[in-house]
C-alpha cells in the first residue's frame, strides 16, 4: 500500500498548485487579508495602548484572550510531558 503515497502526494501537489492561482498576488496592499481589522490595529495602537510595536499590542491587549489560551497550552504541554515520563517519581 505504500506505493500509493507517491501518486496521492502528486495529486495533492497538483491541487495545491491549482489553488494558488486563486490567491492574490504577492505583496498586494488591497488583498482581502489586509482589509478588515488590521488597519484598525495600525491606526489605533498609539492612541489606545501607547505601544508602538503593533504585534505586542495585538498579542497582549486586543487578543489577550488568545494569548491566555496559548500560555495555557504550553503549560499544559509541560505538565503532560512531566506526567508521561515521570509518573509516580515526583518532580
Amino acid at each position: 500500500m505504500r506505493w500509493l503515497a507517491v501518486p496521492v502526494m502528486a495529486l495533492f501537489l497538483a491541487l495545491m498548485l491549482y489553488a494558488t492561482t486563486g490567491l492574490p498576488l504577492r505583496g498586494e496592499p488591497q488583498a482581502p487579508a489586509n482589509a478588515h481589522v488590521s488597519p484598525y490595529y495600525i491606526e489605533k495602537t498609539i492612541e489606545e495602548t501607547g505601544t508602538p510595536n503593533i504585534v505586542t499590542s495585538v498579542l497582549a491587549d486586543y487578543r489577550g484572550y488568545d494569548t491566555l489560551g496559548e500560555t495555557t497550552v504550553i503549560l499544559a504541554a509541560g505538565l503532560a510531558c512531566l506526567l508521561i515520563l515521570r509518573r509516580g517519581k515526583g518532580l
Binding site: L23, P29, A31, A33, S38, I46, N53, I54, V55
Partner: peptide, 13 residues
C-alpha cells in the same frame, strides 16, 4: 507571505 504589502515596513509605528 499573505500578510506582506509591497513598499511597506515592519509593523512598529
Amino acid at each position: 507571505e499573505g500578510g506582506g504589502k509591497l513598499g511597506a515596513t515592519v509593523p512598529v509605528i
